[in-house]
Design a protein around this nucleic acid. Structure first.
Lengths: 240, 240
DNA sequence: ATTATCTATAGATCTATAGATAATGC
DNA sequence: ATTATCTATAGATCTATAGATAATGC
């Protein structure tokens, strides 16, 4: 827990946000009931009294964290979403989706994933906001358009499942890998590592939604994926 | 919270287990830090003092819950695992795996899923025991044998991903659907419902591991799945 | 003069224990 | 006579507040 060396005097708004930011990872890791206000004060580098000055109750502080975090989920998917609807775009989209979820990110995004899963074990409100939010909504729309294009190009089998559900299945597969790896001692040890795992997962879900082997061999190779990482869509990853 | 009407006097061993059983769903739902010993006493129908007589600390009681629960995960997969290694067996296996995870079960199994996900957000020890346990180990071995058979029969494309990882991907996809539906207000609303969702998921992961469309059309239809439910493997579901 | 911050502490709650009571089995 | 169970309570901890102090901006 990083303790600010000199607890400078800040303006009310600055301090309020500083507290939320400092507290976020701890609450995400230990849960609302798992931390004490004493602890929150310690990681914020201020007294408990000051925390209660900015947030009337511990509960409201935690609510603020969720708000703060769902804002931070506002990622820059624009470049991905602007690609023309086509099979190739679908592969990119899914690759970035999977990679964004699986690859270990800076502590802060890590915390937001924890909050997400924690929310699912509780009221599911925050998770509902994230899953129903603008970002994933845009992704899903693009996914739908691309899959339709892939189907009419003969690149994907038309399956009975609703496209919406297919999107979530892709999302879910990657998400549980993320969750499994959040644990102190990862609960499953995969054969593949890092980029290999992302590649395997991407191929798995692309097959799952019906893309045929010929397309996969052409568009969804590790070499292609590597190339994606050097393409402009990369900006997305930096913030993810 | 069901309160035992007449708190009969039990033998030490019986009471000790009764407490663990009574307390399990509450701890699973609210977490170790989210419940108080007062609450645990209330749902157990005994005094706090009696709980501390049987379990020296709150922590040890919770440890016991995990032990108790991981034992309850010992399911009867034998029938599934005894099927001959073949494409048809693979479809059954995956169907039962997915259904067992997704379909809402009696409260108790629900609780064990919650503990599982909770564990992943913490030390991952319990999850590691479940994932590395005998049951899923047997499933995985059968999965491997069946997939090999399917491949050599020309029913499945041989993909680059390790078979072990493919098994987990199947497992994961279903697991996150389970998690999403554990929340009070389900965070994702799928187009498909209940059995339809299970069928869609099963097809999704079967495609994911490389089974071709011809096989799916033949072996993985809703009608087939329905037939599975009337077959002897059903005993598995009752306990799952 | 205003406002951020701290120290000290109240009041509630939580885990755990001590000692008393009541049910069971020999 | 033994042992399961309860009541009452100690001691620690936790959330939240009151009132004092110190830094900033006019």
């Amino acid at each position: 827990m990083p303790k600010p060396s000199v607890p400078r005097r800040l303006s009310a708004v600055q301090r309020k946000e500083a507290i939320a930011r400092a507290v976020l990872p701890v609450v995400a890791r230990k849960g609302f009931d798992g931390v004490t206000t004493r602890e929150l004060a310690a990681v914020s580098g201020v007294s408990e009294a000051l925390i209660f000055r900015h947030y009337p109750t511990k509960e409201q502080l935690c609510a603020e964290i969720y708000a703060y975090c769902s804002h931070s989920f506002e990622l820059d998917y624009r470049r991905i979403v602007q690609l023309p609807p086509a099979t190739a775009s679908l592969v990119r989209l899914v690759y970035f989706l999977v990679r964004g979820i699986v690859i270990k990110r800076p502590d802060h995004a890590d915390a937001s994933m924890r909050l997400l899963y924690r929310s699912l074990l509780e009221d599911g409100l925050y998770a509902g906001r994230v899953f129903g939010g603008r970002q994933l909504g845009l992704m899903r729309r693009q996914f739908t358009a691309c899959l339709a294009a892939a189907r009419s190009a003969g690149d994907a089998a038309t399956v009975g499942t609703a496209v919406k559900d297919l999107f979530w299945f892709c999302h879910h597969t990657a998400s549980l890998v993320c969750l499994v790896r959040l644990a102190e001692r990862p609960a499953v040890s995969y054969q593949a590592r890092a980029d290999g795992l992302v590649a395997d997962l991407t191929q798995f879900v692309l097959r799952g939604i019906g893309l045929n082997e010929a397309v996969l061999a052409r568009e969804a190779t590790p070499a292609r994926f590597k190339a994606f990482l050097r393409s402009p869509e990369l900006t997305l990853l930096a913030r993810l």
